[in-house]
Amino acid sequence: MSRKSLRIENLHVSVEGKSILRGVNLTINQGETHALMGPNGSGKSTLSYALMGHPNYEITDGSAFIDDVNLLDMEPDDRAKAGLFLAFQYPTSIPGVTMANFLRHAVTNVRMPDRKEGEDLISMRDFRKELKQKMDELGMDGEFARRYLNEGFSGGEKKRAEVLQLAMLQPAFAILDETDSGLDIDAVRVVSEGVNRVAKAQGTGVLVITHYQRILNYIQPQFVHILYGGKIVENGGPELVTTLELEGYDWIRAKYPNEAQIEDELESTVLTS
């Protein structure tokens, strides 16, 4: 199996007329693990949403490809079928739709991209078996399969459910948007192991968005990037994480005064809005 690449070039994204990303460049190959860090409001989730195709995020310039497939031309469901997965920072609740039913539809669509609507779903038997196994691996009670998706889930349970979906969908590329936040110490380990299992089996290229070192002790990145003022300003290795843990973002601020100004402007609009 040849390794695919997710290539993001000069990506500019606006939200409600406000320019957030101003030329993001990032390439992730399958089999690689990357970490993306940056202060609150720097645009990390914006990047995730824009790649996944959320309608509120307007791409004003740039491109995003998986090999020669142009993601930005596609509906979000086709992006998922093309192999992109996003574990949401704030997963939406879906009243009345059980996690099992949701996932059976999701898995059917992603594994049989040419299937027509209304045709059979994947076999219930095989699906149940696979779901149970993956839930066991993630330490999830089987009862969650029958619960309405994310309805009344605790913060940590939601994050686990996102990783369960990742494990079921086995994507070529996975973005984990602060999957560690809200997880207790043991859960970070369990969830990280889950991600690593998929990554190893599928050669998934992983982008971990986080504020903390902890998850990166389990999902070890070869590449670390810092998003600041709408751009990736620093690219490095794991040592960058240590520097941030020790020193915070002040040195970034000092080193990139133009981006710092943009970052401040964004912050003030956040405060006044």
């Binding site: 309608p55 509906e75 469901d77 991209p113």
Partner: peptide, 11 residues
Amino acid sequence: FYFQARGIPAE
């Protein structure tokens, strides 16, 4: 959008 992000068409 959440459904679509998991490969399920909007309709």
